[in-house]
Simulated scan of single mutants.
Amino acid sequence: MQTKKLDDAITVAYQIAVEDVQAIRDQGFTVLMCNRPDGEDPGQPLWEDVKSAAEAVGLKTAFLPVSSREDAIAMKEPFQAAMEAADGPVFAYCRTGTRCEILWTLANS
């Protein structure tokens, strides 16, 4: 799993598999955030499946899907709220991690 730490509060990554959730929890993350809409690619795990796995291991979850510039702008405040509510480090993913990084940049500008 390729990751990029943006700061002490958030790390972003490429699309994860349901099987990655336990390892994410084991690394000390407390929130799992998805910034990718369901159905972009065949075989992409559904958010509900990832969310169920995350909640089963005690992770909080946030689903803030972004597929356009307008979506990113609209998700700025929900992203900020999710980050402020986090009680530890956040692990966010999308297809390549770029949308997660865009949201983080918008939230910090």
Rank of each mutant, 00 (worst) to 15 (best):
L103V: 09
T98S: 15
T61I: 01
W47C: 07
P45D: 10
E48L: 15
A17P: 03
P78M: 05
K51D: 09
S68V: 05
N108V: 05
D49H: 11
G39A: 07
A81V: 01
A13T: 14
A23M: 07
K51R: 11
F63R: 04
R95K: 15
D8F: 09
D7W: 02
T61E: 12
R36K: 14
M75G: 00
E55C: 08
L64Y: 00
A23H: 10
E19W: 03
K4Q: 12
I102R: 14
I73E: 15
F91K: 04
T30W: 04
W104N: 08
I10N: 06
M33E: 03
D7T: 07
E48I: 15
K5D: 06
L46F: 15
D49S: 14
A56F: 15
V57I: 13
I73T: 13
Y93E: 01
A85L: 09
G43D: 10
D26F: 12
T3K: 03
T3L: 04
K4H: 10
P42T: 08
R36V: 04
E19F: 08
T98G: 13
E101C: 01
A13W: 12
Y14P: 11
P45K: 04
N35D: 05
A72S: 10
K4N: 09
P45W: 04
T3S: 03
D20Y: 09
G39S: 05
K51T: 03
D38C: 05
A54H: 01
P42E: 15
G88I: 02
A62Y: 01
A81L: 03
E19N: 14
Q27M: 13
G58H: 12
D41P: 06
M33G: 09
K4D: 05
Q15I: 11
V90E: 00
A56K: 10
I16T: 11
A92H: 03
A82R: 04
K51W: 01
D8R: 08
A74D: 02
D41I: 14
D49C: 06
E48N: 14
G43E: 10
L6T: 07
G39R: 01
F91P: 04
V57L: 13
I73F: 11
F63M: 07
D71A: 06
D71C: 06
G39L: 12
T105A: 14
G97C: 11
E40L: 11
T11M: 02
A81H: 10
F79M: 06
L106E: 00
Q15N: 12
L64S: 01
F91N: 03
A85W: 08
V21I: 14
P78D: 02
Q80V: 11
E84H: 13
K4C: 05
R69Q: 15
A85P: 06
Q44V: 12
V50R: 04
D71Y: 08
E40S: 06
A62W: 07
L46G: 12
D41C: 12
I102F: 06
V31G: 08
I73S: 13
A107Q: 00
Q22S: 14
T98W: 02
Q22L: 14
C34Y: 07
E101I: 10
Q15R: 15
A92M: 08
F79D: 04
D38H: 08
Q27W: 06
E40Y: 11
F63C: 09
V66F: 04
P89T: 00
W47D: 03
A72G: 05
M33S: 08
L46Y: 13
P37M: 07
R25L: 07
C100W: 06
D87S: 13
A107H: 01
T96E: 01
